[in-house]
Design a protein around this nucleic acid. Structure first.
Lengths: 247, 247
DNA sequence: CTCTGTCGGTGTTCTAGAACTCCGCGCTGC
DNA sequence: GCAGCGCGGAGTTCTAGAACACCGACAGAG
């Protein structure tokens, strides 16, 4: 069992755990960097790399000349009226069914392997599902999982059980957080055929990475939705402070 | 003589300038890190710090084993922090300029007149503006106002004053709320020409109705953004109640 | 013809320091 | 009193190098 994960990564994880476990509460000052480096048995430079990771996650704040502090927990966004763009639209009250088109081991492109934190060569399990609203194809969803997880998932009945449920009850993985990115693309030949429209029509492409509670990426989803079948709507409220703020 | 700004900061700035000046175009591979370090006269570690800065700014992408590349200038749009999708992107820290293409009385389609609560025959004032990010066309925005309001607006200098400000200070109308709806479309001939791309390419079309404090519709905006220049991103947090809730 | 192993190029991680800046605090001198 | 100085603690920047990991490509094996 060699340490394939970088040391600074492990250190960050260790500190993150301490923070999450409540052993380090917001506002607490950490040991100074040299001390920490010593106690982890690494160089100052290495330790600082770990701190940088945590800072980017907004878990700590470093103040020159003062020390390193545990940051106040970030605000939770509840304002989200949006459901899962990629995924179940059932919340909208439509009759949604899912047809499993295939599940197999495949090679994935870089965006997928990057997102999942895998090597470019690594095989992944790819699921392909078609979502139908009132019987009409709505979206084509390709999900990618690492083989370790994916092989287990393939054994389940994905025609009837949602992927999230399989992950949770069969593998004990709970999806906690996701990052989604939507762009406008032209529909490819294969995607168009599955969705029953012509190749080249404009469509939304949503790419989503879902993370478990430990912050590890679990699933990469890529969803195609023809542009004439979907709209993103949103209600905006302007705050006082914003009005006329533009120079 | 004293270099108060860190060296890695200067290096980042230098590279950033090269990118913005167009001397390094998207997709270009930079010299390898050792080379760059040598040419800047610093250590590899120091150079890497500079690259990290640029990576966090999404100006470059580093790919293990391959090289360091100038990133595509696609703008990320966090829908949670989202303010005006159609409108100022300046909050993202980009250099945004606006070019007024025209303002005149015109006839509008039904979606517009409906949204503004006007009769189908009613004339409206149409403004056409091009938004440029770092000098490159980003979006084409058509705004429609009722003639009563629009005629006043036309007298203002829209090249330099944001529309919201004109409405607020010249007409005493404060935009309070808006409803926005985004779809994926194919770019029309005229829009493509203005945006400097080919007709038919996939694009986002955002339609937005803005309301004043009394709840009356004031402006209808229709914005086109080519799909390769824009992305919507969002961060999702799953609540306990949501987990495994799907039947 | 496909698979596999190796190789050169490139990014990544880490060491062991040294010198520097920034900050608060207490001591000193007025 | 209180203004200024300097000290010590803490984060920051930087060096010079070594070892490692990853990728694409190409050549040889089956």
């Amino acid at each position: 069992m060699n340490a394939r994960v970088p040391r600074y990564h492990r250190i960050a994880e260790s500190l993150r755990d301490r923070i999450h476990a409540g052993r380090l509460t917001p506002g607490t000052r950490l040991d100074n960097q040299r001390q920490l480096a010593k106690s982890f048995g690494v160089t100052l430079m290495t330790l600082r790399q770990a701190l940088e990771v945590l800072e980017r996650e907004n878990l700590i704040a470093r103040r020159h000349g003062l020390g390193t502090f545990v940051a106040a927990p970030s605000i939770d966004y509840d304002i989200l009226q949006l459901r899962r763009f990629a995924g179940d639209l059932s919340a909208q009250g439509e009759h949604v069914t899912t047809r499993l088109l295939g599940g197999r081991v495949a090679r994935a492109d870089r965006r997928v392997t990057d997102a999942l934190g895998l090597g470019a060569r690594a095989g992944v399990v790819q699921l392909e599902r078609l979502r139908l609203v009132d019987g009409h194809p709505m979206s084509l969803q390709r999900s990618f999982l690492s083989t370790a997880v994916g092989e287990e998932v393939l054994k389940a009945d994905l025609g009837t059980t949602p992927l999230r449920q399989v992950l949770e009850f069969k593998l004990g993985i709970t999806i906690d957080r996701a990052r989604e990115s939507v762009s406008a693309v032209r529909l490819g030949l294969r995607e168009a055929r599955e969705l029953g429209c012509r190749a080249g029509v404009p469509a939304f492409e949503s790419e989503r990475v879902s993370f478990d509670q430990g912050g590890a990426p679990v699933v990469f989803d890529r969803v195609f939705i023809p542009g004439d079948r979907f709209r993103i709507t949103r209600e905006l409220h302007y705050e006082q402070s914003e009005r006329g703020a533009t120079s």
